[in-house]
Amino acid sequence: MASAPLSDKSGVTPRAGGRTPSGLVQHLPSLVAIGLLAMALILPGMMFESDQRPTAVGLGPAAWPRAMLLGLAFFSALWIARDIWALGGAGRRPTLSMPAEDGEYHFGKALIGLVMIVAYGWLMPIAGFSVATAVFIAIWCLFGGVRKPLVVVPVSLIGTVALLWLFMGLALMPLPRGAGAFDTFSIWLLRATGIY
């Protein structure tokens, strides 16, 4: 059988012939376990608002989350213990290892992409769906290597109007119109496209 990478159900597909991170970098995911253990120990104390007293009848509303967090703490501790054991001997692999890279994964690009996505979500209630979406599509295309203005401009503008018509016109979804001048612009656009 041809050697083929097996992906997990999340769709993670380690690339064949890839470069596997080595040394201490490989143990970086172990920090996740430490963070999760700390979280599982701290969160039970933050379950309710300070002015709220949990009901004392039966098991109460805290029982289930507390049990789950206890389980999370237990398995996180087990994960840490296993990784300490893996650190102690050559050839032992940590519980979780970073997937192999093929040398073509641009972390900087990925991080900028994430920032752009978060900024789009943040901008939407301020600038409105139409402006935020048109700007986002245009910038994303430019950043993704589509540089021709004759492609970027129509894709972002026609795409945005099509989505507006589909969701606000057809599905009657009250997508954000933005604040102040953006709200005025959104209303004008919605009237111009026959949605309002």
Binding site: Y120, P125, W140, G144, G159, A171
Partner: peptide
């Protein structure tokens, strides 16, 4: 181009999340 596909996936995902309760 994958960039165009990706841009629309993000927008549709965001609209999909918003549409669950019409809540930002």
């Amino acid at each position: 181009p994958p960039a165009i596909l990706a841009a629309f996936i993000i927008v549709l995902s965001v609209v999909g999340a918003y549409g669950v309760r019409n809540n930002i």
